[in-house]
Design a binder for these strands. Structure first.
Lengths: 194, 194
DNA sequence: GTCTATATCGAGATAGAC
DNA sequence: GTCTATCTCGATATAGAC
């Protein structure tokens, strides 16, 4: 419960978060995390009782951090439509990372779906944060019936862009698709609010 | 070079292919493959000198098998437009597997992008097979300028659908998106051939 | 709380009998 | 060609000193 211990725990989670993104969950060892943080391997087990617990901490931390980010957007951007653009442009801002490592959320979901008990974690919580926020923004714009469907579609488009951009290492493709996605959204909003 | 040896080699690759899809490359051990085939672990090294070589064999086998499948489609379906529908509907036909394990191509690309040297393999060869075939079909329909762009878009849409369907275990979403994708394709072809 | 040392396990890979 | 036995390594996890 001491301050120093809590701070270290957070540093472990932050380092694990980053390494899980760069190399995947399974390919990240305690040694890797320990080296990144600058502590010894044995120290982990004071803060976490197994590797799965670090995974869950990473997921929870990400969920909290995404929520905080979206709250910031809500504060700094008043027009919901501009918020949606800003969401879509996130891939443009992160294009270099996506090119090399894909989407941090999607790639983790994809990996964890293959491993062990899916009951021990729920990586899709991270996607759900964005889905729910998107629904809210669309409803603010007057979209009533299709808000959820459009939101899911936006998630999927983002995932597809990330996967293909990463697989082909094609940054131009990402840029083109992001542009097209914003146009699609405009059309869709127009149609949905008649 | 004997017939029996070659047959076994192919059986190893087939079993590895399936297990890589179900559990991922890294999470599949030689023991897993050996058990599935019904041979001993040591026997692998007569046919492959390391695990990476099995991976490459799996990728090459898939590329060949996808090419053969598309040749069959070309034979049995004469209208390129119907071929494209049949391509998109592939996700519908495979929806149960996608729900549980994602796209066999996309999930492998995503995993391998995180691991080791990307120079040792090129998983995107599998995607390229479909991309090139899609381009051909579109050109047959009279699409000149945007054939590659539309093809890449179709790949990405498919990847996005698979990732999100898998993450949320939402089969209805897949069905809805497949339907929407066919409609999008119709519009796009109309626009591209004016 | 953080460390060092160690236990245990399963992985990829090798040697050599048959 | 296929097997059994074994090597080596690195992983998660534990015990106990400080």
């Amino acid at each position: 419960m001491g301050n120093k211990g809590e701070a270290l725990k957070q540093r472990i989670v932050t380092a694990a978060d980053n390494l899980f993104y760069l190399h995947g969950y399974d390919n990240t060892s305690f040694s890797d995390i320990a080296d990144a943080v600058g502590i010894s391997r044995g120290n982990f087990y004071y803060h976490f009782k197994c590797k799965d617990e670090i995974l869950n901490a990473v997921i929870d931390t990400r969920v909290a951090s995404y929520r905080a980010m979206l709250r910031d957007w809500d504060k700094s951007i008043t027009d919901p439509r501009l918020r949606l653009y800003f969401y879509i442009d996130m891939q443009l801002r992160n294009q270099d990372n996506i090119l090399s490592h894909g989407c941090p959320i999607g790639s983790l979901c994809t990996e964890l779906a293959k491993v062990s008990d899916s009951s021990l974690h729920d990586a899709n919580k991270m996607l759900a944060v964005f889905r729910d926020w998107l629904i809210t923004q669309l409803k603010l714009l007057g979209v009533k019936k299709n808000a959820k469907q459009i939101s899911m579609h936006l998630l999927a488009r983002g995932q597809g862009i990330a996967t293909v951009t990463n697989a082909f290492a094609d940054k131009k493709f990402l840029q083109l698709e992001v542009k097209g996605l914003k146009q699609w959204l405009d059309d869709e909003i127009l149609k949905s609010i008649h």
